Simulated scan of single mutants.
Amino acid sequence: MATEQHSASNGSVKHRHRQEGPQRHIVVFVFSVVLTLIAFAAVAAGGVNATFAVVLLLVMAVLQVFLQMGFWMHLKDKGHLLPIIFMLGGFFIAGTSIVMALYWVWWD
């Protein structure tokens, strides 16, 4: 993100961040809609291999998560490291819990 510099009357330099316009949000929204349409088309097209459809849906879901986190929740911006660390910790704990629950259910 570009910054603009403005001189104050006392000679110091103030940094001001340029506001992010709606163009990037519109592009991300259209990309999210396209990903959703691809996922619906893969499921609706009956002749697609089930394994391929599941993998495609998982890839589309991961892309959607990154787009939504980065652009709609503004985690791509500076100063959002702590929320990212807490979310990664939550994903790790949730993933570990799911793997362990599956292991306990199917352990012989």
Rank of each mutant, 00 (worst) to 15 (best):
V34R: 01
S9T: 07
G89S: 15
F29Y: 07
G89P: 00
G11N: 10
S32P: 01
G11S: 12
F71C: 01
I85E: 15
Y103K: 06
L35S: 02
L82Y: 06
L57N: 02
L56E: 03
L75V: 00
S12K: 11
F40T: 01
H6T: 13
E4D: 11
F66P: 00
H25P: 00
H80M: 15
T36M: 11
E4F: 07
Q68R: 08
V105A: 14
V34G: 02
L37T: 03
V54M: 13
H74C: 10
H6I: 12
L75R: 03
V33L: 13
L37Q: 04
A41G: 05
V65Q: 08
L37P: 00
Q68E: 11
D77I: 01
K76G: 14
G70R: 02
F40H: 03
V55L: 15
A101F: 12
V28R: 01
L67Y: 03
A41R: 02
V30W: 03
G90H: 01
Q19S: 09
L88E: 09
Q19W: 05
D77S: 14
R18S: 04
G79H: 02
M69V: 06
L102D: 08
F91C: 06
W72Y: 14
M73K: 13
K78V: 09
Q68S: 13
F86W: 13
I85Y: 13
A101N: 07
L37N: 03
W104M: 09
A42V: 05
L35F: 03
I93G: 02
M69C: 10
T51E: 12
R16Q: 08
H17E: 12
F92P: 01
V48Q: 02
R16A: 08
K76T: 11
A2F: 05
W107M: 07
F71I: 00
G21C: 05
E4K: 14
D108E: 09
L81G: 11
P83K: 10
V65E: 07
I26E: 05
I85K: 12
W104F: 08
F92Y: 12
R16F: 06
H6M: 08
F91K: 01
L56F: 15
G11I: 06
I84P: 00
G21M: 04
H6W: 04
L82T: 06
F31N: 00
T96S: 15
W72V: 12
A53D: 04
T36W: 05
A2T: 07
K76E: 14
I93D: 00
F92I: 13
L88H: 04
A53T: 14
G89M: 14
F71H: 11
T51C: 05
E20F: 04
W104I: 05
N49Q: 07
G21K: 05
G21R: 07
I26W: 05
Q5Y: 10
W72F: 14
E4T: 12
L67R: 00
Y103S: 08
A44Q: 07
L56N: 03
L67D: 01
N10H: 08
I85M: 14
F52E: 06
A44G: 09
T51D: 11
D108G: 10
A94C: 08
V43G: 02
W104G: 04
L88K: 03
F92C: 12
Q23S: 07
N10R: 04
Y103L: 10
V105K: 10
R18Q: 10
P22V: 15
P83L: 15
A101Q: 06
Q23H: 08
H74A: 15
I93R: 01
G89V: 07
V62C: 13
G11D: 08
L75F: 15
